[in-house]
Each structure stands twice: as C-alpha cells, then as structure tokens.
C-alpha cells in the first residue's frame, strides 16, 4: 500500500509539472496583455512590459516562473497592486472551500438518500422525482439554477439574501444549493441504478433466505455495496464543483477562488491564472488519490489488486 501511494504521488508530481507547463504555454498565446487600460499611453505600456519582463522570450519567462515555483513563490498580480498570488489565493480559499464542501456534503447525502428511496420504491413518486432532478441537475448549468433562485427566493419572495456574506450563514444557502444540484443529480442516479442491480442479485436473495429483515438486508448488504461506485464519482464531482464554482461564485459575489479565476482571466493576470490552475489541479488530484485509497478500503476485491495483500 505504501509503495502504491508513493507511485501515485510521483504520478501526481508529473501531472502537476505538465499542467503548469501547458497552462503557461497557452497563456503566452492569449491575445492582449495585463496592461489593457485605455488610460495608459503606448509608451507607458512598453515601459510596464519591460519592467515585468513580458517581452522576454518564452523559455526565459518559463524558466523564471519555474525557479520561483521551487522557491514557493507563485508570483505577483499585475492588477491588484503587486499582491502575492499565494496570499490572494489563501485569502479566498475559505469562502470557496466552505461553499464547496457544503455543496458536496449536502449534495451527496441528499443524493444517496434520494437514490435509495427511488430504488426501493421503483416507479413511485420518489423514483420519478429523482429522475426529474437528475435530468435537471445534469442538463441545466448551475448558474441558471442560481439566477432563477436569486430571482424567486431573493427578489420576489425576499426570503434569502441574494449576495453572499461571509458572516451570514443563511447567505450561503443559495450558492450551496446551486452547486449541489449537479452533485445530487449524479449521486442519486448512480445510487438508484446500482441499488436496483444489487437488490435483484442472488446474494440479496440469499441474505433474505437467512431470515434477515428487509431493512437489515438493505442496509447491511445492499446500500454498502451500492456506495462503492458512488465513491468513485467523487472525483468527477469535484471537477463539476470547481467548474461550477467559477460561475456560481460570480453571480452570488462569493469572494472565492472561482470568482478570482474569472476576474484574472478577464484581466490577463497571468500569474494569478497559473496559480489558480495549480491549486485546482492539486485539489483534484488529491481527491482522486483519496478516492482510490478509499475505494480499496471499502472493496476487498480492489484491495488485493492494489497491492495490499492481506492474506
């Protein structure tokens, strides 16, 4: 197991190196520059470009960035008064993580419960509701759901604050729901289909033939096994949370990473974009690693294949 994790960590380092290099290269081809302000004269722009080394050849810029990275520096922002990118990210982390985690936890708990009910009562109201939520959650982007909620709950009914406010827990409800929708949809659908398969399997019949009650069979034998594939989609779900957050944070004015990413892309704020890319990829890769380790812990068949031979 140790060896397995070490190898996986090595792969992570390689992946990060590739991601940083490719993002860096792509940014060089982006039109425009950080100094697009119309009030700046062409001479001032040339001076600024010179000062920040933007006219250097790409390999030189790349080498400089990487060597800074090794010193733990993500560079500074062009736009926000030379702020350190790492400070900017650190300051915005808490809001993003809060909303993201809330969405992940609420979403997966609701999704799993909904999936269980739908599977146990097939073709009932709950089953149809789950299907409807799943279709809506997958096909309607989070920002549409977010804006609709803002209009109805925030403006028309005025029961929830439209804008996120760090000190006010109620204000996190709407961005959380907007983000959680796709999580609910995916987990519920997975859970339902998996559980339906398992309920019709021989080992459930055998468990029932031992005299276990219906709920004992469902909880001990069915739900646990159905959760295994649900754990695996935690990875893809984090992606959808990250991408969803960029827009959802924007419309709810959450001072988070997603919001910062959108602003920095609009401003060609290279180092901020790079830093954010690095943080997002790190988050995603760690989730995938944790999921793989978890998966092995839950499913004994994988544990063997993964190298942790317990015989």
């Amino acid at each position: 197991m140790k060896k397995y994790i070490l190898v996986r960590l090595l792969y992570m380092v390689i992946a990060i190196a590739l991601i940083v290099s490719i993002t860096f290269l792509l940014l060089q081809f982006m039109p425009g520059s950080p100094f697009n302000d119309l009030q700046l004269t062409p001479e001032q722009r040339v001076l600024l470009d010179e000062k920040y080394g933007l006219n250097d050849p790409i390999p030189v810029k790349y080498a400089r960035y990487v060597s800074n990275l090794f010193h733990g520096e993500l560079g500074t922002s062009f736009i926000f008064n030379n702020q350190d990118v790492s400070d900017m990210i650190a300051a915005r982390m808490s809001s993003s993580v809060r909303v993201g985690l809330q969405a992940l936890v609420c979403g997966s708990v609701i999704g799993v419960l909904l999936g269980i009910v739908a599977a146990l009562k097939r073709n009932s109201f709950w089953d149809h509701l789950t299907t409807i939520i799943a279709v809506i959650g997958v096909s309607i982007p989070a920002f549409v759901i977010g804006s609709l909620m803002q209009y109805y709950f925030g403006v028309k009914m005025a029961i929830l604050p439209v804008i996120y406010d760090k000190g006010n827990a109620v204000s996190t409800i709407m961005p959380t729901i907007a983000l959680a929708f796709s999580v609910i949809a995916t987990t519920a659908k997975y859970m339902r289909n998996e559980l339906v398969d398992i309920i019709n399997s021989d080992y459930i019949l055998f468990a029932r033939s031992k005299g276990l009650t219906g709920s004992e069979v469902i909880i001990k034998h069915a739900v646990r096994n159905a959760l295994i594939p649900v754990v695996t989609i935690l990875g893809p779900m984090t992606i959808s949370l990250i991408t969803g957050s960029t827009v959802v944070e924007r419309i709810f004015s959450v001072p988070g990473l997603g919001n910062l990413l959108v602003t920095s892309i609009q401003n060609n704020d290279y180092f901020v974009i790079l830093g954010e890319g690095l943080v997002f990829s790190l988050m995603f890769l760690s989730v995938v690693l944790v999921v793989d380790i978890l998966y092995g812990l839950i499913d004994p068949r994988i544990r063997l294949a993964g190298g942790n031979h317990n015989e």
């Binding site: 080992y203 055998f206 005299g211 001990k220 068949r301």
Partner: peptide
C-alpha cells in the same frame, strides 16, 4: 405475515442457491 416468516427463514427452512459465485456478498 412477513415478520413471522422472517423467524422461519434461515431457522426452520433454509435454502442453497444455484450459483455460488453470485450468492455471497462480495464485500463481507
């Protein structure tokens, strides 16, 4: 009733199924 039957199943009447590869829970 199902509740009564549960006391019978496994205790008085038990069953072996056709395919041993699928009649055991893989995660227990």
């Amino acid at each position: 009733k199902e509740k009564e039957f549960e006391h019978l199943r496994g205790r008085d009447i038990a069953m072996i199924f056709q395919d041993p590869m699928t009649s055991l829970n893989p995660c227990m």
